[in-house]
Amino acid sequence: MGKGARKKGPKADRKQKKVRDVFVAQPFEGLAAEPELIALREFVPSATARLSLIDSPDRTVTMGTVLPMAAAAFVRNDGEVFVGMQVQTRSSDISRDLGRSLRWALRAETGDVLSAPDTTGEPADGERLQDLLVAGAQLEVELHQDFSWWLPEDTEATGDVALSLERANAAIMPTERLGNGLYWVDAGDKAHLRWVRPEPEGRLLQALARLSANGEIGLGEGTRYAGSFRAHGLLVPVWDLDAEAHAREWAEPAEQLGSRLDAALASLEDEPLNATERRARDGLLGRQLTLR
């Protein structure tokens, strides 16, 4: 070896294998359950849903909003397999993070815990949720009043799990599911309706603007369209509601609003926004936030 030559070591190899981390703005695109996945990731406190797997249709895997100590996945002592949506770390592609956690869970043994998803490994084929889940399958979401589903029946939490369970239960806001991606949330002084919509943002904003210009964007007396936030590529409109009314009292007004919104979306095919509706759209744009 010549005097000026340097031997390549592990550090040099790692530099050569540096992964290009490309941000995926709509990580759940192509899955019918996209609105529910976003809701479970962002604001639903305690809920579970069984996953429909492409290659393992007979395997039972449950997706949960939050797992003990915010773990990415674990296999309960009774053999039940869980994957967590709300975790502490993430890469530029949440679908890949969750897919890796799911693949780990399918190989794990009873009692195994994956504390954090793999967010640094080199991307490979077949590891995103779109590669692992049945694309057309909806999620049958089950809401819970607490996090007792972390444990098998007749099992008492101890140690760190007990502490994590206590903290998680204390943070729960009362939540009801009223439809696909549609949730009522009691935030204390007021209640909200949050609706993860599957339409492209621009088109949805136009439809909301048409409703707003016509005075049809509300849910009835005492309600107010509060604005919207972007979450993982989709828009989530939010309405302020009377906190004294029961969640189910909003089911019918929400259904009627959905019908008006569908009609507005359809009308855009032949009727572009007029000047009043464009001003309404500009006003709606001013009340947006983005959640990555």
Rank of each mutant, 00 (worst) to 15 (best):
V87L: 03
G233T: 12
D125I: 13
A5D: 14
R278V: 12
G227E: 06
S259P: 11
F74G: 10
G181D: 03
P57T: 08
S52G: 10
Q26V: 14
D112F: 13
R76L: 08
V185Q: 03
V113E: 04
P68R: 02
L40V: 02
D242R: 10
E277W: 06
S228P: 10
E176L: 01
P198N: 05
R210I: 12
P117M: 00
R210Q: 10
A187V: 11
V185I: 13
M69G: 05
A25M: 00
L67N: 05
R287Q: 10
K190V: 03
Q86D: 12
S148G: 07
R210T: 09
R292Q: 14
E34M: 08
E244M: 08
S164L: 06
A116C: 15
A245Q: 07
R50P: 06
A254I: 08
L289Y: 00
T89H: 01
S164P: 13
E216D: 14
D125K: 13
A254P: 10
F82T: 02
V75T: 06
G188L: 09
E109C: 14
V161G: 10
L51P: 06
D55T: 08
G30P: 12
L133P: 01
I172M: 11
A170C: 03
L53C: 08
Q256C: 06
A263Y: 11
F82H: 07
I54P: 08
P27N: 09
D55P: 12
E277Q: 09
A157R: 13
R197E: 01
V185A: 00
D189Y: 11
G202C: 08
A157M: 13
A243W: 05
R194Q: 12
A33N: 02
E140M: 00
V22E: 15
V83W: 02
A105N: 04
L268P: 13
P237R: 01
D112S: 13
G159K: 04
A280S: 05
S115V: 07
L98E: 02
L133D: 09
L261Y: 01
P35R: 02
L285E: 07
E244F: 09
F28T: 05
